[in-house]
């Protein structure tokens, strides 16, 4: 049995890496959906939302097929880079990222849509090109939404169960995150003590994440609230 501390550390690692991995992708997708006018936009929107509505086990199974050593992504990964995600914490982070994607995209997209385009126009008349306008006006104004997206993604990643256990199984010390450890402890006679402690830690981490993101959003100085 793994120590509580190593389970927590692994969960934070998986959740943190999953969140960091999903944010840039989510931002690009949110930007395309909020600002772009291209054919297939509705289809893209639907595809992004799939992990939210499909049973997580199915998402995990799709990942398993795609990233298996003989799979369409797993094969080349292994051959060219010698990398495999199966039964590894990196696979757990990927599952968490995929499950978190729709939530992150939604939050970031909403905030991008609420950015006042007239302020971007004002910046352009003051000599700011496209990139400077984005960096100095658009991004800071939608920052609270990015933070909200990150918080949601992290919370989702931390709680991920179905896709993770299907994709990378429950390997203590490698893929056994908090929810998996709680489930495993529940199956063991006399595991209630551990369940209590892990559940309390889960609640505490989620609460801290919410408070930190709220504090960051306030510090951004616009009084835009995540909660």
């Amino acid at each position: 049995m793994e120590s509580v501390w190593s389970i927590v550390r692994l969960s934070l690692l998986v959740g943190g890496v999953g969140t960091l991995a999903v944010l840039p992708v989510a931002f690009l997708l949110a930007y395309a959906l909020a600002r772009g006018r291209f054919p297939g936009r509705t289809l893209l929107d639907a595809l992004i939302h799939l992990p939210l509505v499909v049973p997580p086990v199915v998402t995990g199974w799709v990942l398993l097929i795609a990233f298996a050593p003989a799979g369409p992504i797993g094969g080349p990964l292994e051959r060219w880079f010698g990398v495999t995600l199966l039964f590894r914490w990196t696979g757990a982070a990927l599952a968490a990222a995929v499950m978190a994607l729709p939530l992150a995209v939604r939050a970031i997209r909403l905030s991008l849509e609420s950015v006042d385009r007239r302020l971007e126009d004002a910046a352009r008349t003051l000599g700011a090109g496209r990139w400077r306008t984005f960096r100095t006006i658009t991004l800071p104004l939608c920052w609270p939404g990015v933070l909200a997206g990150a918080t949601l993604a992290f919370a989702r990643a931390l709680g991920e169960f179905g896709a993770t256990i299907t994709f990378v199984s429950n390997v203590p010390g490698e893929t056994e995150t908090l929810p998996l450890a709680i489930y495993a402890a529940l199956q063991r006679p006399g595991g209630e003590d551990l369940v209590w402690r892990l559940a309390a830690i889960s609640v505490a981490i989620s609460l801290v994440a919410l408070l930190v993101s709220e504090w960051l959003a306030r510090r951004a100085g616009r009084g835009v609230h995540v909660l």
Binding site: D116, R118, A122, T125, G129, T133, I137, L141, A220, R222
Partner: peptide, 27 residues
């Protein structure tokens, strides 16, 4: 951004996330 228009909008359009000094210095 290459026209060098000094455009004063009816609704001012100050950048809400920048203080007055940084608004003034933006361009």
């Amino acid at each position: 951004h290459h026209r060098r228009a000094g455009y004063v909008f009816q609704d001012a359009r100050l950048f809400l996330h920048l203080d007055v000094r940084r608004n003034l210095l933006y361009g």
